[in-house]
Simulated assay, not measured.
Amino acid sequence: MNKVVLLATLASVITLAGCSSTSNIDNSAGRATVYEDARSPGKVQGVGVESQDIMAVTDQMMRDMLSNPQLVSRDVAPRIIIDSQYFTNESSSRINKNMLTDRLRINLNRASNGRLVFVGREYADMVEKERELKRMGVVDGGTIRATQATAGADFRLVGRIMSLDAMDTRSQERSRYHQITFELVDLELGTYVWSGMYEFQKTAQDDVIYR
C-alpha cells in the first residue's frame, strides 16, 4: 500500500513540474511591426547618423545647389557626378555613404528638370560593354544616336563625414558632434564651384548599435 502511495505521489510531482516548466513559456504573438516617420526620431535612438539626419542634410544640400546660379543658370546644363567614391566617412559613426549620395542625386535629378545632367560614372563598364556590342553589330544601335565617346563630366561631388565625441563618465552620457561637408569640384580646373555644410550634435544616456 505504501508503495502505491509513493508511486502516485511521484507521478503527481512529475506532472506538476511539467506544468510549471511549460507555464513559463510565453506563447503569445510578438509585437507587430510599427511603421515610423523616417523624418522624426524613432523609438530606438543613439548619437549616430540616423534616418532623419540623412533626409535633413540631403534636402538642405539639394535646395542650396538648386539656388546656385553657377550650376542651374548656365546656357548648357552642366554634367555632374554624384556618387560616394570621393565621399569619405572619417567619423566614429557607422553609415552607408550611398544613402547620402544616392538620395541627394535622385532628388536633385527630379527637382532640377533638366537644368543639371548626372553622369553615372560608377556604371561606366556596363555602358562600354553595350557600346561595344552595338559597334560590333551584335545588337542594333537602339533608339539613341551614336556618340563618339561616353559623357564627360564638368563637376564631381566630394565630401567628408567627421565627428567629435565626448562622454561624461559619471552619468555615462555620450555626446557626438557631426560635421558633414559637400563640395563640387571643377574637373578641368580643380576648383570648388559650390560648397555646403551640415552640422548637428546629439546626446544620449546609452548609445545604440548601428548596422
Rank of each mutant, 00 (worst) to 15 (best):
M1N: 11
V4F: 11
L7E: 15
L7V: 10
A8R: 10
T9Q: 07
T9Y: 12
L10C: 09
V13N: 04
T15R: 09
G18A: 07
G18R: 10
S20A: 13
D26R: 02
D26S: 11
N27I: 10
N27K: 14
G30P: 13
G30A: 10
R31V: 06
T33N: 08
Y35L: 10
E36G: 09
D37N: 15
S40R: 15
S40Q: 13
Q45G: 09
V47I: 14
G48W: 02
V49N: 03
V49D: 02
Q52H: 11
D53N: 14
D53V: 10
I54D: 07
I54T: 08
I54W: 01
M55Q: 12
M55D: 15
V57D: 02
R63D: 00
R63T: 02
D64L: 14
D64H: 14
S67W: 05
S67D: 03
S67H: 07
N68D: 14
P69S: 09
L71V: 12
R74C: 06
D75Q: 12
V76D: 05
R79V: 06
I80R: 01
I81P: 07
D83E: 08
D83G: 07
S84K: 10
S84F: 04
S84G: 09
Y86G: 01
F87A: 05
F87P: 00
F87Y: 12
T88Q: 12
T88I: 08
N89E: 09
E90P: 00
E90C: 07
S92Y: 06
S93G: 10
I95F: 04
N96E: 15
N96S: 02
N96G: 04
K97D: 07
N98R: 10
T101N: 05
T101H: 00
T101F: 02
D102L: 10
R105W: 06
I106T: 11
N109Q: 13
A111C: 01
S112E: 01
G114Q: 04
G114P: 08
L116D: 03
V119M: 06
G120A: 14
R121S: 03
D125Y: 15
D125Q: 14
V127I: 10
E130C: 01
E130M: 13
E132F: 08
L133V: 00
R135V: 03
M136Y: 04
G137I: 05
G137P: 15
D140T: 10
G142K: 07
R145N: 01
A146M: 09
T147G: 05
Q148A: 15
G152D: 05
G152S: 10
R156I: 14
R156G: 11
R156S: 13
D165K: 09
A166R: 03
A166G: 15
R174Y: 13
S175D: 01
Y177Q: 12
H178F: 15
Q179D: 05
V185P: 00
D186C: 06
L187I: 06
G190H: 08
V193I: 13
G196V: 09
M197T: 12
M197D: 08
M197H: 04
Y198M: 06
E199S: 06
K202G: 00
D206R: 13
D206Y: 12
V208N: 10
I209H: 02
R211Q: 13
